[in-house]
Design a protein around this nucleic acid. Structure first.
Length: 544
RNA sequence: GGCCCGUUGGUCAAGCGGUUAAGACACCGGCCUCUCACGCCGGUAACACCAGUUCGAUUCUGGUACGGGUCACCA
């Protein structure tokens, strides 16, 4: 068989040689130990937590080592492509603070190793495809979908492994004449790798899992589809070599195709990157775990976290705790430190499927917002409102000073309040600070009948002095409480409930509800000062 | 079914031949307290199973069970 003629027949327009590609995409000049990583989402319009999870690892690895982190769009499947999906990916990554040094950007490319969209790299793949054909390692295959289906049925009946390999690879030994005839007859073809029938094993050192051993590939898998576009396997090997990736971070579902990738790296004479196969994100269902599903689990989509208004820092901290078991320890030791200073390491990665625990995320989110300054909370929250709650954004802009003051309630000191979990929740929590959204949602305590209420608010307003400090203010509340026949000390009431109409708890709750609409709210004195005297008086007078 | 990966409390997890088997979240008590949130103190709760190696296995080996992945001209 004259492979050279076959190669020229299949790829008449390809004149570049592999060496030309090597010259065009030279090794990167980076400090020793620098990692080059990437994410390679396919533009389906759905960016999920797993994408972010792997992105974070790549981003940390690259930026911690002075390397490069880039975005490559894996759009080899045109059927699944959704318009605008590239922008969706970029926006989502941007929202969560993942920044690329190079790669696809909106409307183009940024960097010297592009194009960064696989469909635009067709000519590059063809150079190596032609090379493989010339060396007898790849061949055109004319099997139709029906024929392949028939082969599979036969294999299943015989209890053999399904697939095109060995004797089932019908087009392996076609003569050049037959190939020529098939092509001129208009038959479609794919390019297949010529798998070797062997019982050898391969061994790959995975950076998170250790040694991975499995049978060497024996399949005649597809390199180029009939439209000339490569499959993931071929594109991955060519791209990660030419773009000089040092580490390939991807989900564990890729482990089973590793033999194909090893085969190609060897066939092309290239050094393999370090593989990092990460755990699948799981979810609790009934008594068991299962893989997070696109259809059933809204929390898989990144857009869910954006809509809920989970801050990007919270997502980072959450994923970091899942990613590296020692992160929480590190965080507790230094609550103020920037998470970017945490020394992320692959060795500390968990290899079993991690469950997405929304409770934990919320808890982390509270801490994260709690640590932010009021100004930062203001900025981030407003940014979210601009996107997802315009009415509230307007309100915040209308009362900037009051909002900042409200966000400052409980800040400082060693026991800062942690009222805010998400930006969405912040909108409902903060609503009582604005007359436009203020509503009394809780019932007044049963101990405070209408007469008590009237009496209390009258006395309170009469003695109210907005200039009182916290203790002066509370002394007045206590005195009114006593006058009304309520216990000033809750414990006294607990001990002898029959001696009082209620306790100061009921009185302050009544006040709190009048002022904030809720029985649960921050310190009354502080809240009053955020609201200002006029609003305080207005809200209380309604109860007279 | 073949091949592969995994299995420590409800969840995330430390552990790398000898430990009273960490810690975090959640849950339950208690304290603090004008409510809540915070904070503090305490509590419930785990090495899937069976063999083997060993003086000694959560840790090493084999098997079983269970869970997961993958077997496309999808990634």
């Amino acid at each position: 068989m004259d492979y050279n003629s076959l190669a020229n027949l299949l790829f008449p327009d390809v004149t570049d040689k592999p060496e030309d590609m090597e010259a065009r995409f030279p090794e990167r000049e980076l400090p020793a130990g620098a990692c080059v990583t990437r994410i390679g989402p396919s533009p389906t319009g759905f960016v999920h937590l797993g994408n972010l999870y792997n992105a974070l690892i790549g981003e940390r690895l690259a930026h911690q080592s002075g390397g490069v982190f880039y975005l490559r769009i894996e759009d080899t499947d045109s059927k699944r492509e959704v318009e605008g999906a590239v922008e969706t990916v970029i926006n989502a990554m941007n929202y969560f603070g993942v920044h690329f040094d190079e790669g696809a950007v909106s409307g183009g490319d940024n960097g010297c190793y592009g194009p960064y969209r696989q469909r635009q790299r067709e000519a590059i793949y063809h150079v190596f495809a032609k090379d493989l054909v010339q060396r007898g390692l790849a061949y055109p295959c004319f099997l139709t979908a029906e024929q392949i289906e028939a082969i599979r049925e036969k294999q299943t009946a015989n209890k053999e492994n399904p697939g095109i390999y060995g004797e089932y690879a019908a087009c392996r030994d076609l003569t050049i004449q037959q190939v020529k005839e098939n092509i001129s007859a208009g038959m479609e073809w794919v390019l297949r790798y010529r798998g070797v029938q062997t019982d050898e094993y391969i061994s790959v050192e995975d950076a998170v899992r250790g040694k991975l051993e499995m049978p060497r590939n024996n399949m005649d898998f597809v390199l180029l589809k009939s439209d000339g576009i490569p499959t993931y396997h071929f594109a991955h090997v060519v791209d990660d070599h030419l773009m000089r990736s040092t580490h390939v971070i991807r989900g564990e579902e890729w482990i089973s195709s590793l033999p194909m990738h090893v085969e190609l790296f060897n066939a092309l004479g290239w050094k393999m990157p370090v593989y990092c196969h990460t755990a699948t994100l799981m979810k609790m269902e009934g008594t068991g775990k299962r893989k997070l599903s696109k259809r059933k689990d809204p929390e898989l989509a990144l857009s869910y976290y954006q809509q809920e208004g989970i801050s990007s820092d919270a997502i980072w901290e959450f994923l970091l705790t899942v990613l590296n078991s020692n992160f929480e320890e590190w965080r507790i030791a230094d609550p103020e430190a920037d998470y970017r200073d945490f020394p992320y390491s692959l060795e500390k990665m968990s290899i079993s499927g991690a469950l997405v625990d929304l409770d934990k995320l919320r808890n982390i989110s509270k801490d994260v917002i709690g640590r932010m300054t009021a100004d930062d909370v203001y900025k981030n929250w407003l940014g979210w409102c601009d996107e997802y709650n315009n009415d509230f954004a307007e309100l915040i802009r209308k009362y900037p000073e009051r909002t900042i003051a409200a966000l400052n309630v409980g800040k400082g000191g060693n026991k800062p309040r942690k009222d805010l979990e998400t930006w969405k929740q912040a909108c409902s929590f903060m609503s009582f600070y604005y007359d436009e959204t203020f509503a009394v949602s809780d019932d007044m305590p049963a101990e405070c009948d209408e007469e008590t209420r009237n009496l209390f608010f009258a006395k309170y307003l009469e003695s109210y002095d907005h200039g009182d400090d916290s203790s002066e203010w509370f002394a007045k509340v206590k005195s009114i409480t006593e006058e009304l026949g309520f216990a000033v000390k809750p414990k006294d009431y607990k001990k002898n409930p029959e001696q009082y109409k209620g306790s100061i708890v009921h009185i302050t709750n009544m006040l709190r509800i009048a002022l904030t609409g809720h029985a649960n709210a921050p310190d009354i004195h502080e809240v009053s000062h955020v609201l200002g005297e006029e609003i305080v008086r207005n809200r209380l007078e309604k109860w007279l």
